[in-house]
C-alpha cells in the first residue's frame, strides 16, 4: 500500500511538474510585463513556443559534433530527474530515499556541463564567453549552496530532501535567524543558477545577453526547444526546492489519500504562485549587475550561509 501510494504520488508529481514548468516561466513573464505596464503574452505562451520550435527543422553548424545533438537531451533528462526528487504536493514519494540535496546539486552540475559543452562545441566567440562565465559563476554558487545545505543538515540531521522538509514542517523549529540567512543564500544561488535578473537578463534574446543565452546561439529547432524547456524545468526546480524547504506547510504525506493530496496540491500551487510573483516583483525592481560584481553577490551569499551555520553551531552547542 505504502509503495503503491509512493509510486502513484511520484507519477502524479512528474505529470504535475511537466505541466507546470512552462507555466511558471510564462507566468513570470506575464507578471513582469504587467508590472512594467505592458499587456504581455499570455502565461501559456511558452507552450506555444515549444510546439512551434518542435515543428521546425533543426540546423546544426557544419563542424558541430555529437555533443551539440546529445547535450540538450542530457540536460533535460538530468533536470527532470532532479525535479522528480524535489517534493511538490506530497512527501514520501517513491524516489524520496534517493532525494538527496547533494545529488540534486550534482545533477544540476551535470546539466550545466552539458550546456557549457554545447556552447563550446562549434567554437564561436559568444558560446565560449558564455561558457566561461557560467562555469565561473558556479565556482561561487556551489559553495554557497553547500553551506546552506549544511544548515539544513544540522537541523534535520540529514541531507535527504524529504527528511529536511518533514523536519521543517513538523519540528518545533520556530523562526530562526539562521534559517532566514540560509534562505537568502539559497535565493541568491537560485537567481544565479537560473540566469535571472541581477546576474543575467532572461528577457533578452540577443547576442548581447551575457551568460545563458550566449551558449544557445547555435541551437535551433527541437534542440532549442529542449534548452528552453530545460531552463523552465530548472526555474521550477529551484522554486519548488525553496517552497519545499522554507514553506513546508500543507504538504501531504504520500499515504494520506487523494483528499490530502488535493489540499497539498492547492498549497503547492499557492506557494509557487507566491514565489513566481515575488520573482517577478524582484526582477522588475532591480537592475542587472555587471558581470564582475556577481562574485561579490554570490560571495555575500556564501558568507551569509556561513553565518547561518555559525549561529546554528552556537544554538546546537547550547541545547
Amino acid at each position: 500500500m505504502q509503495t503503491l501510494a509512493g509510486l502513484l504520488t511520484q507519477a502524479l508529481h512528474l505529470a504535475l511538474v511537466l505541466l507546470a514548468a512552462p507555466l511558471v516561466v510564462g507566468c513570470t513573464r506575464w507578471l513582469k510585463a504587467r508590472m512594467m505596464g505592458r499587456r504581455g503574452a499570455p502565461p501559456w505562451q511558452p507552450v506555444r513556443d515549444l510546439a512551434k520550435l518542435l515543428r521546425k527543422r533543426p540546423v546544426l553548424a557544419e563542424n558541430a559534433s555529437l555533443v551539440s545533438e546529445a547535450a540538450p537531451y542530457i540536460a533535460v533528462v538530468t533536470t527532470l530527474v532532479a525535479l522528480a526528487l524535489v517534493p511538490s504536493f506530497a512527501q514520501g514519494m517513491a524516489f524520496a530515499p534517493l532525494g538527496d540535496l547533494l545529488l540534486v546539486a550534482g545533477l544540476l552540475a551535470l546539466a550545466r556541463v552539458a550546456l557549457v559543452l554545447a556552447g563550446m562545441d562549434v567554437g564561436t566567440a559568444f558560446g565560449g564567453m558564455g561558457a566561461a562565465r557560467e562555469v565561473s559563476f558556479s565556482a561561487f554558487a556551489e559553495p554557497a549552496l553547500l553551506v546552506a545545505v549544511l544548515s539544513f543538515a544540522i537541523l534535520a540531521g540529514s541531507t535527504n530532501l524529504d527528511l529536511v522538509a518533514a523536519t521543517f514542517r513538523d519540528g518545533q523549529l520556530g523562526l530562526r535567524v539562521s534559517l532566514a540567512l540560509a534562505a537568502i543564500a539559497m535565493l541568491a544561488v537560485a537567481l544565479a543558477d537560473n540566469a535571472r535578473m541581477p546576474v543575467d537578463n532572461p528577457g533578452t534574446h540577443l547576442e548581447l545577453t551575457m551568460v545563458h543565452e550566449a551558449m544557445l546561439l547555435e541551437s535551433s529547432g527541437r534542440h532549442l526547444a529542449l534548452w528552453e524547456f530545460q531552463a523552465a524545468l530548472k526555474l521550477e526546480l529551484w522554486l519548488a526546492l525553496l517552497a519545499a524547504v522554507f514553506l513546508p506547510f500543507g504538504t501531504a504525506a504520500a499515504g494520506a489519500g487523494p483528499l490530502a493530496w488535493g489540499l497539498g496540491l492547492l498549497a503547492w500551487l499557492v506557494k509557487m504562485a507566491g514565489l513566481t510573483l515575488a520573482l517577478a516583483v524582484f526582477e522588475s525592481a532591480i537592475a542587472k549587475m555587471r558581470v564582475f560584481r556577481v562574485p561579490e553577490f554570490l560571495g555575500a551569499a556564501l558568507l551569509l550561509a556561513l553565518l547561518a551555520a555559525a549561529l546554528l553551531f552556537v544554538s546546537t552547542g547550547l541545547a
Partner: peptide, 20 residues
C-alpha cells in the same frame, strides 16, 4: 516524445556565430 513531435532530420549549415 521529442522525436514523435519533431520528426524532421537535422540539416547542416554554416555556423551562425551571432551573425559574424
Amino acid at each position: 516524445a521529442v522525436r514523435a513531435r519533431s520528426p524532421l532530420e537535422t540539416r547542416r549549415g554554416p555556423v551562425w556565430n551571432g551573425g559574424f
